[in-house]
Design a protein around this nucleic acid. Structure first.
Lengths: 157, 157
DNA sequence: CGCTTAAGTTAGACACAGTCTATATTTAGA
DNA sequence: TCTAAATATAGACTGTGTCTAACTTAAGCG
């Protein structure tokens, strides 16, 4: 049995989720594809090989896996929800020009920051979404011009 | 002419957007309702009073207003997109128990933080999404117990 | 083992959010 | 006033996600 299988089964165990073939296939796909897959892509990927899963099952499993913290639903504005295996926490960057969603390595918010703004709330997790222009869109023609869409280039951080 | 009208017209002016009746109605509604309205709610609100607007127009205007920075599309995971008038920037808090979305007063990320993680990207804006339990859900029965869903209470920030 | 029961799976109908198209109207500016 | 470009419109259409009711499987127990 491969390392991955062991790892996944342990993850199920500790999350108290039954390791069904369909659920396993969903998690395995996400663990092996470090991209931000849509539910639809996952649905097709799973149904290409064996344990088949209906659309409802894929959604059910994504939800139960997300609840258990094994998978994360991406925060974004696109129409189709995207998911990734929640192995390493990270922030996200959304390119306003080409729409790409990129991972930003995790860094902590200094704990003093935001304390008072949050009041009595209990914060379990957080994530920062940056927007701007990715590496490829930074200078549209390789030229020295400014970024296209609305003209005002300038880092805010 | 009211203060608000003047303010809105100036906003259009500076954004180089034509102040059409429909566009005005959309922005006026958002400015007057500091909640996170869905496109559908805005559509209905606008069509209750005069300048009527078709569904497509509401969506078009929300997009053009968002592009101009007068309106902001909320980052979240629900199915229907939500918008607010972008008067004061703020972060968001999502209650994992009751689903409420709350505004968190704006605070800047210290500029040193994240610099290296972002590489060459040009960051225009950013927003932090916190998740956890809101004030009301913090102690389910008013009792001293822990938060329900998965048991492990504890602030991370 | 062989039951029992609760959790999970299924196909496909359904509901809803958002987009598109082709045409008509309005605005800004000359 | 006239023209070109921007914007508005109705409603059909697409894609994403949910629901239902019947069926299957996993886990615990005697």
């Amino acid at each position: 049995m491969s390392n991955l299988s062991v790892e996944l089964e342990q993850a199920f165990q500790s999350a108290a989720l039954r390791p069904t073939a369909q659920r396993y296939a969903v998690l395995e796909f996400l663990a092996g594809h470090p991209v931000h897959a849509t539910a639809e892509e996952i649905f097709h990927a799973v149904n290409r090989s064996d344990p088949r899963a209906s659309r409802a099952t894929v959604y059910n499993n994504l939800r139960s896996l997300a609840k258990a913290g094994l998978v994360r639903e991406l925060v974004s504005e696109g129409k189709a929800a995207r998911f990734d295996a929640n192995l390493h926490p990270h922030h996200h960057f959304l390119c306003e020009n080409c729409g790409a969603v990129e991972d930003i390595p995790w860094f902590d918010l200094p704990s003093a920051v935001g304390r008072s703004a949050l009041g009595e709330r209990v914060v379990r997790r957080y994530e920062i979404l940056f927007r701007g222009h990715c590496d490829r869109c930074r200078r549209p023609d390789g030229g020295p011009g400014l970024v296209k869409p609305d003209g005002n280039e300038g880092a805010v951080i």
